[in-house]
Amino acid sequence: MGLQIVRTVAELRAAVRGWRADGQTVGLVPTMGALHEGHLSLVQAAKGRCSRVVATLFVNPKQFNNPDDLNSYPRSEEDDAAKLTGAGADVLYAPSVNEMYPQGFATTVSVAGVSEGLCGAHRPGHFDGVATVVSKLFLQSGADMAFFGEKDFQQLAVIRRMVLDLDMPIEIVGMPTVRDADGLALSSRNQRLSEAGRAAAPALARVLASAARSIEAGGDIASTLQDASTSIKAGGFKSVEYIELRDAESLDPMVSLDRPARLLAAAWIDSVRLIDNVAVLPPIASY
Rank of each mutant, 00 (worst) to 15 (best):
L118Q: 04
P176A: 06
I159P: 02
L35I: 12
V6K: 02
G117T: 01
F105N: 07
L40S: 11
H126M: 02
R161D: 05
A209L: 09
S194V: 09
T177R: 03
S286V: 09
P74L: 06
E249Y: 07
R49E: 15
R161W: 05
A200F: 05
V272F: 04
T8K: 13
L70H: 03
D220H: 14
A87R: 03
S271Q: 08
I284T: 10
S135R: 01
V6M: 04
G88M: 12
R192F: 09
V130T: 07
P102L: 06
I221E: 15
A131N: 07
K62P: 00
M100H: 11
S115W: 03
G38M: 12
K151F: 12
V111W: 05
V158I: 14
G2A: 15
A94T: 12
E216N: 03
T8H: 13
K238D: 15
E116L: 00
V26M: 08
R192P: 03
G18V: 01
F147C: 00
V109W: 03
R160S: 11
A34C: 06
G38P: 08
M168C: 05
V207G: 10
K62R: 05
E150T: 03
V59N: 04
E37C: 08
A143E: 01
L139M: 02
D180E: 15
T107K: 04
P95Q: 07
P67V: 05
D22H: 13
V26E: 03
D180M: 12
P67I: 02
E99N: 09
G88A: 08
S110P: 00
A285P: 01
V97N: 07
L257R: 05
A222R: 15
L42M: 13
Q44F: 02
F148M: 08
L92A: 07
S256G: 01
F105V: 08
G104E: 07
G197D: 08
G149F: 02
S210V: 14
V255A: 13
A212E: 05
Q63M: 07
A222C: 08
H36E: 10
A55Q: 00
F153C: 05
A261S: 04
D227L: 14
